[in-house]
Design a binder for these strands. Structure first.
Length: 425
RNA sequence: GUGAGCGUAGCUCAGCUGGUGGUAGCACCGGGUUGUGGCCUCGGCGGUCGUGGGUUCAAGUCCCAUCGCUCACCCCA
């Protein structure tokens, strides 16, 4: 085996795909129930799109993007996240209409050149939603309630943590307060926090060092620095979450990695995934559309990591991962039966049955084994005797019971007769 | 980018202080039934011990390098 997949790029094999399909189907269904429509956007975009939305000094832009020069010399990037592309499409296609609210979702791969580890890949997949055009705190709540419902219906445990990052009105004051606070104890902080205190003072709150966290107990709280409007917004979000019975915890120290967030931010967190606890995250980004050259349209969205959901679901291993099943395996004996069987096979498929047969010239016994391996519900045995008598032997593979099914002289009717018989069982 | 651990059959792994690669499990193929699966049983296929160099009479085992994987840091879905 000489050529292998790239580091951080994974094949998803059939057994695991079953989990993916279950999650995707469940999630799509919920998206639709909440009035979301699917949008498909390109995987490649101009580099500038991500630089301008995600933020120049974020880790994603600084060192994680798959960026290269296109044949015409322009810089293009494989998307590291979905929101930027969706907003671009929203503006470019004029999806905004005065007073309208768009609910969009998209599912697909994202790319970040990071060092892979448990729950972190270079190509990973997200299901993400965006609501564009509403300032209402109820939208924030709806989006979080939807995320919560998805986990419920998939059958996963996680906790919802929320915070408010304020707006351009109130954040500068908090940033200043934070810097002042850090200045006073800069010598007691870890190297990372010393660096962050100038580059991105809010980030220190995320530090995992116990020593630093001990310092931050008395740090200024963003929530206490919110302006009146942001405060009222956050209060309404909390109240309406309570109203819907969605459990959450306020985490005033939660910071997000993308620069565009304003007001409400949230994360769905699990402790069962090693170091990668976030299985979904999002927030409000009220200035983003305007910043990209669109109208003054507020937005909110979130993304869930497919691989992390799949991993969690896989860990539960409660028999959900049943293999795909064949309705019928067609067993033939002899040349003539094989020829007739091949035509019958196609006719049965046209009638909607999942049917397979053997082309390797295996013995009856071996064909039965194949049927078993494929998890076939039934086998139909078509041999010389059956052909002569115009009948087939239908065997229920679970009970082992078998019966003769009488056919007619008209070959074209056989498939329908067999299909009917199977559906009666 | 930094650190640690691990690379033996398609997969999961034994292999002690160096002394001929395991009747190992799963999977796969075939027999035990001249037309019948699962269970059982018997047999078979299957390995450049990641790669290259070194030490040694002798290296899967020790040393060095290299590649790969994994986990963690950073950051994030």
């Amino acid at each position: 085996m000489s050529i292998k997949a790239l580091k951080g790029f994974k094949d998803i094999l059939p057994d695991e795909v079953i989990l993916w399909q279950f999650i995707e189907k469940t999630t799509r269904d919920i998206f639709h129930r909440y009035g979301f429509e699917e949008i498909k956007v390109p995987i490649l975009e101009k580099t500038d799109l991500f630089v301008r939305t995600i933020g120049e000094s974020t880790d994603i832009v600084e060192k994680e993007m798959y960026t290269f020069v296109d044949r015409n010399g322009s810089s293009i990037t494989m998307r590291p996240e979905g929101t930027a592309s969706v907003i671009r499409a929203y503006i470019e296609n004029g999806l905004y209409v005065r007073g309208s609210v768009q609910r969009l979702y998209t599912i697909g791969p994202m790319f970040r050149h990071e060092r892979p580890q448990k729950g972190r890949l270079r190509q990973f997949h997200q299901m993400s939603v965006e609501v564009l055009g509403s300032n209402s705190a109820r939208i924030d709540t709806e989006v979080m309630a939807m995320a919560w419902q998805i986990l419920q219906e998939i059958g996963l445990q996680a906790s919802l943590e929320i915070n408010s990052l304020g707006c351009p009105e109130c954040r500068p004051a908090f940033k200043e307060a934070m810097q002042g606070f850090l200045q006073g104890r800069i010598g007691h902080l870890c190297d990372d926090c010393q660096r962050r205190s100038t580059t991105n003072p809010l980030r220190v709150l995320d530090c995992k060092s116990e020593h630093c966290q001990a310092q931050y107990v008395t740090a200024p709280s963003i929530i206490e620095h919110l302006c009146g409007a942001c405060r009222r917004h956050f209060e309404e979000v909390k109240q309406t979450l309570d109203l819907l019975g969605v459990p959450y915890a306020v985490n005033a120290k939660m910071v997000r990695g993308l620069d565009y967030y304003t007001r409400t931010t949230f994360e769905l967190i699990t402790t069962e995934l090693g170091a990668q606890g976030a299985i979904g995250a999002g927030g409000r980004y009220d200035g983003l559309v305007r910043q990209l050259g669109g109208p003054e349209v507020p937005g909110i969205g979130f993304a869930m990591g497919m691989e992390r959901l799949v991993m969690l679901l896989g860990q539960k291993k409660d028999g959900l991962a049943t293999r795909s099943v064949l309705d019928l395996f067609l067993v033939t004996l002899g040349e003539e039966a094989y020829a007739k069987g091949f035509v019958l096979l196609q006719m049965l498929r046209s009638l909607g049955l999942r049917v397979m047969m053997d082309h390797e010239g295996r013995s009856l016994k071996n064909q039965m084994k194949q049927a078993d391996k494929q998890n076939a519900g039934f086998t139909v045995i078509l041999g010389e005797n059956e052909l002569a008598n115009r009948e087939v032997l239908l065997k229920d593979m679970h009970s082992g019971a078998q019966q003769l099914v009488e056919l007619t002289p008209v070959f074209e009717d056989w498939a329908a007769l067999i299909a009917t018989k199977i559906r009666q069982q």
